[in-house]
Design a protein around this nucleic acid. Structure first.
Length: 291
DNA sequence: GGTAGACCTGGACGC
DNA sequence: GCGTCCAGGTCTACC
């Protein structure tokens, strides 16, 4: 079946998909040949379905590989809305960027939205898997997590949904370390899964939370394995842009842009975007880098 | 509050 | 083929 959803303009499915590396992480699948984004998703009823995303003039069309009950369809529409940020409003950001040549194209290109997973649990776990490793390592870790613990797609059991907190909570940290190669992150992931599965941590409540950004950041920093960089990255995913996610890549970009390639630290990266106030993280994200 | 060292993996490099 | 070094953020202990 096919779902058609409209987005607040300007909207570009291409820009959302290519906003960062998430399409390369299972259970997303970026089909380079067809230029199509796919994802395996587990619904609340326990059914596992495949989604294919295609652009439409009003927003996005989602092809689902099987008919859905009305409740399943409503659930899926809400998930797609969240993943693509269909209702997000960047008009204030665009207004603030018109005087900055390096951001002047942001509105015309419909930049600002960041591809999200369907749950914050998945995005926190993926973000932890990006820290202190190479991108190739992140891809391997997430691929192994999905392959070993995700529920299979009936039409193609080689493809699986992202594992639920309950499933990962039932796996001991030693197995995560040995089989998923999570290394020292294994107890962090296991602890996070247990906290979410037991209900002691309601991660999903942070989506749309009315907490101030510093309070939200403190909630994220309280998660083992989430430090300054990871918290700032997750805040961007949550639609809060007060902090720049400073990692080695950000330092490299800022070094080339403003310091003739000389090594810079967190202080210089933050200083580069200090003037953007509540839009710091988005200005960094959308900057038209020289390199 | 700031800092040093440990954590873990995989890739690059030298032998 | 083997050993060593290094990069990548976060945590913990210590000052």
């Amino acid at each position: 079946m096919r779902l058609e959803l409209s987005a607040r303009p300007p909207f570009s499915l291409h820009q959302v998909i290519h906003s960062h590396g998430w399409p390369q992480l299972a259970p997303f699948l970026w089909d380079r040949a067809s230029g199509e984004l796919r994802r395996v998703e587990r619904l609340a009823t326990g059914r596992v379905v495949e989604l294919r995303f295609d652009p439409t003039p009003e927003g996005v069309a989602v092809e689902v590989d099987t008919p859905l009950a009305p409740a399943e369809q409503a659930e899926l529409e809400a998930k797609v809305d969240w993943m693509l940020g269909l209702g997000q409003d960047f008009s204030a950001f665009y207004a603030a960027t018109r005087h900055e040549p390096k951001l002047a194209q942001a509105e015309a290109l419909a930049r600002g939205r960041v591809l999200r997973s369907s749950t914050l649990f998945e995005d926190v776990l993926k973000t932890i898997a990006t820290t202190n490793t190479t991108w190739g390592g992140t891809i391997r870790m997430i691929d192994a997590l999905v392959r070993l613990y995700g529920e299979p797609l009936p039409a193609d059991p080689t493809r699986r949904a992202f594992p639920t907190p309950e499933r990962l909570a039932a796996v001991d940290a030693d197995s995560l370390r040995a089989e998923v190669k999570l290394g020292y992150r294994a107890p962090y992931v296991q602890g996070l899964a247990q906290a979410v599965a037991s209900g002691s941590l309601d991660l999903e409540a942070l989506r749309g939370s009315e907490l101030s950004t510093p309070e939200l950041r403190q909630r994220l920093l309280a998660i083992k394995g989430v430090g300054g960089y990871a918290a700032a990255h997750l805040l961007v995913i949550l639609g809060r842009y007060d902090y720049v996610p400073v990692d080695s890549w950000a330092r490299s970009l800022v070094a080339k842009e403003w310091h003739d390639g000389r090594r810079v630290g967190e202080t210089e990266v933050n200083a580069a975007f200090e003037g953007w106030g509540e839009w710091r993280g988005l200005a960094y994200w959308c900057w038209d880098w020289a390199d």
